[in-house]
């Protein structure tokens, strides 16, 4: 019996697929493995130890960078999600309006404009503001991160809204619910998984950003990724591997949670 077309039966498919996975995951596996190296080297295995995790934990710079990264990611996530929810509502619950396509493109701007361009642009604008106001706090980083996190928060929320039965909102209105009460009682309870998924995605994106952070941060405002970058320029020890492995763990947990949330049924 003739089989339907199946890409797995193409010559060389298995080999290419395996090669791709090895290329993708081998470096990460090595990174994780060497974070447990008891020696100083990133290339010579000398035995298992928690040494570099302890070292990272005891390092004040790592601790403050971690705190800063978390505060930054949480604030940026909150801000980005707060912008993304009304944006998604306007794009999917309003009557079609003129310029809707343009607005869509503008919301998703960070996905299209090269990050380095945004970074330089922000550097210039924020430098002027810093000079004018004298303020050099975390505000700039939070604003910058919120800006590029918006599309990542926006997309899962929009997808959730599109998937929801619009007739339920009509039923709510039909039963004397004002638009605000219908939103609170009908739309929002069903939208939560989308909002949480968007927030998690935004959190992960903010947590591992280097380029924009590097350009926008003031002196002494290292986040975990920029701290690691700085370390690599000097002494490279498996401590960097240990930090990277922890970041990886957080991201994996978030992405898995995101995956399950976006699959939640209404």
């Amino acid at each position: 019996m003739a089989k339907a077309f199946d890409v797995r039966h193409q010559t060389g498919f298995a080999g290419i697929a395996m090669a791709c996975f090895v290329l993708l995951y081998l470096p990460i596996v090595l990174l994780v493995v060497y974070s447990f190296n008891s020696g100083m080297s990133l290339a010579v295995w000398e035995g298992f130890s928690w040494r570099w995790y302890a070292s990272a934990w005891d390092n004040d710079q790592v601790r403050s960078a971690t705190m800063r990264s978390l505060v930054l990611a949480l604030s940026a996530t909150a801000l980005a999600t707060a912008c993304a929810v009304p944006a998604a509502l306007a794009m999917s619950r309003a009557r079609r309006f003129k310029g809707q396509g343009l607005i869509f493109a503008m919301i998703n701007q960070p996905l299209m404009v090269p990050e380095i361009v945004t970074a330089v642009a922000l550097l210039i604008v924020f430098a002027a503001v810093k000079v004018a106001t004298g303020y050099t706090g975390m505000g700039f980083l939070i604003l910058a991160h919120a800006a590029f996190c918006i599309p990542f928060a926006y997309m899962p929320i929009k997808a959730r809204l599109e998937g929801m039965d619009k007739q339920l909102e009509q039923a709510g209105q039909d039963l004397y619910g004002t638009p605000w009460r219908v939103f609170r009682r009908i739309t929002l309870p069903q939208l939560w998984p989308g909002i949480l998924a968007g927030a998690m995605l935004a959190f992960v994106i903010s947590l591992d950003d280097v380029v924009i952070t590097e350009f926008v941060k003031s002196a002494g405002q290292d986040t975990l990724p920029t701290y690691m970058l700085g370390q690599l320029r000097r002494v490279v020890t498996p401590e960097v591997n240990a930090i990277a492995t922890m970041l990886l763990a957080i991201s994996v947990v978030m992405v898995v949670a995101f995956f399950f949330l976006s699959k939640t049924k209404k």
């Binding site: 007739q167 009509q170 209105q173 004397y176 069903q190």
Partner: peptide, 20 residues
């Protein structure tokens, strides 16, 4: 009047019951 001020209620074809 907007829909929520009309003393009229609808039984929808798909029922549109609130799932939550």
């Amino acid at each position: 009047l907007p829909p929520y001020r009309r003393p009229v209620n609808t039984v929808f074809q798909s029922y549109a019951l609130f799932p939550h």
